[in-house]
Nucleic acid binder design. Structure first.
Lengths: 320, 320
DNA sequence: CTGTTAGCGCTTTCAG
DNA sequence: CTGAAAGCGCTAACAG
């Protein structure tokens, strides 16, 4: 019942605990003979050292916290997969903390991370978060933080995301070439940095002759309603959608109005679901796994380095 | 830079470390006066005890590992949310370990959990897993395990899932009432327990007069191809789909063939995406959050109890 | 190459 | 009510 310890093993082998520890960790000091003897017995008895204790001693937790508002249906699951894979390959584990998009809970989560002494934090801010003061404690006790997805500009913390404005601009340019004179553009909640950036990029690249009907939708349903209205009102047949969630609403409205083939839909998607639902869909390939891996790589880099220097990483995307 | 310790605080206040510890934990032994003085200073200095150390001392990690093949696009994200919420409410944290549906990696993950001394494991098996021998170590060192989602029968470990056969039967019965004489039924990979159970339940409840065309699809695309073929070949207008992924393929084929309104689609869904895409969709409400919460509740129960007794929990579902 | 010793930061008997 | 002391399981100087 009670797990064995290094001491037990040492007593058994008539050597000291430190020898066992070193042998198990392949420390070069230990003679091959002793090393093998220890490792052999360890295997036979199925002994594995308590890594919790080892980490405690080494003042590390080998834990990276991923703090985010919630796990939406697309993108975020891929980000988590990307992060977890990258971390596992480097012998770190992934901890998930949800803030439910509440600033209060974000502070709480960050504090818990500090108390648990996680080795690093990957943070996607909740929408209410306007500054990064609550991350000061991380700074003072030396826990590196990398912002991803929903971020705000900072001159202390690294961040990883795509160049939203540029990508949205690519979408606009694509629409320019299609000889349409009206487009319905649907963004996410207006206060979201992501909405603002993509909107800016979109508008600055869109040809002036094109009329834009704009909407901030908080979910698929709102996007659907708006798209539907636009089709009814203006026979709109070109759409821009900021996310898979929004695109779902658009495509659903388009399909329902049986204007499928003629309609052009452009936007940001992970390319897993939407291309199924509409032939004439062109999207910025917003790959969560890539972002997750990059974010994880960056935090590992910060952990390894001595002087933590800020670095903003822009992930390249392409229009498919 | 170097975080403060209880000892530092104790020196500062001219009391012993144990007093500080007790005061911070609201131990009744400590006089109100001292308690307040300690807590006050702790607040002023922003001191928070190192919970990693405390947990080590208390031989607990306050960590629950969630071990699963991968984070698909639907269902699993909700399960994780449900788990995390329930755990957070009880001061536990969620650790994510991915097995990538490889038995090797599942073993590895379980071993890591044991070495880290997690307080409990929530496990969704990978498809290759045929027995539970690799969980023996958990048994011997006393880490409780709860199986969820993809499980196999066991007489040692608790499990949480829906009654798949019953639910699939409900789908079949619904189809029986609709006066169709042919239905295309699409399941997941054949080796999946979930596929088998649902198939069994479906067939045993389906009226004998109805012809069934069956397919095991590993993704939306295969489901789409099959559904499309069936429509072309038999003018099929009734479909059963085992998951959101499969339903996506079905609905996409149905929409494309412009037989939308006449077609009946029945299956298992989380109800978040699919109802948007097809009016005549009836689905077993497969709510990941509920399952996640139940699984988390069960592991907490096992942790609290002394004699761990196995319990199979069936989550009720309804056809919407 | 191996053992001795000390200690990570906290909790918890056990005394007083 | 408070303090002294031991120790969770492991690692890492420091000796030898």
């Amino acid at each position: 019942m009670k797990p064995m310890t290094i001491k037990d093993l040492a007593n058994f082998l008539k050597v000291s605990p430190s020898t066992v520890s070193r042998a198990l960790n392949n420390h070069p000091d230990i003679s091959l003979e002793v090393r093998l003897r220890v490792q052999q017995l360890a295997k036979e008895l199925q002994f594995k050292p308590n890594s919790f204790a080892a980490n405690f001693r080494k003042k590390q937790s080998k834990l990276i916290a991923v703090v985010l508002p919630k796990i939406y249906r697309s993108f975020i699951p891929d980000v988590i997969e990307g992060i977890t894979k990258k971390l596992n390959d480097n012998h770190f584990q992934t901890l998930i903390l949800l803030t439910e998009d509440l600033f209060e809970r974000e502070i709480e989560a960050i504090n818990q991370c500090c108390e648990m002494r996680v080795d690093g934090i990957l943070l996607s801010l909740c929408n209410q978060t306007k500054d990064l003061n609550h991350l000061q404690r991380c700074q003072t006790i030396g826990i590196p933080v990398v912002l991803f997805d929903n971020t705000i500009k900072s001159d202390c913390f690294s961040s990883v995301h795509i160049n939203d404005a540029l990508a949205a601009g690519q979408c606009a340019e694509f629409i320019n070439k299609q000889k349409v004179n009206r487009v319905a553009a649907i963004f996410g909640p207006e206060e979201l940095a992501i909405s603002q950036n993509r909107k800016l990029g979109f508008f600055s690249a869109l040809a002036k002759e094109i009329t834009v009907d704009i909407c901030y939708a908080k979910d698929s349903h709102e996007a659907y309603t708006f798209a539907n209205d636009q089709i009814k009102k203006h026979q709109t047949c070109a759409f821009f959608g900021i996310s898979d969630e929004v695109l779902l609403g658009i495509v659903s409205a388009v399909n329902e109005n049986k204007v499928t083939n003629e309609s052009l839909v452009v936007g940001f998607s992970d390319g897993l679901t939407m291309p199924f639902l509409h032939r004439n869909l062109h999207y910025i390939n917003h790959n969560g796994k890539v972002i997750g891996k990059a974010a994880a790589a960056q935090i590992l880099k910060l952990i390894a380095e001595d002087e933590k220097l800020k670095e903003d990483i822009l992930i390249a995307v392409e229009l498919l």
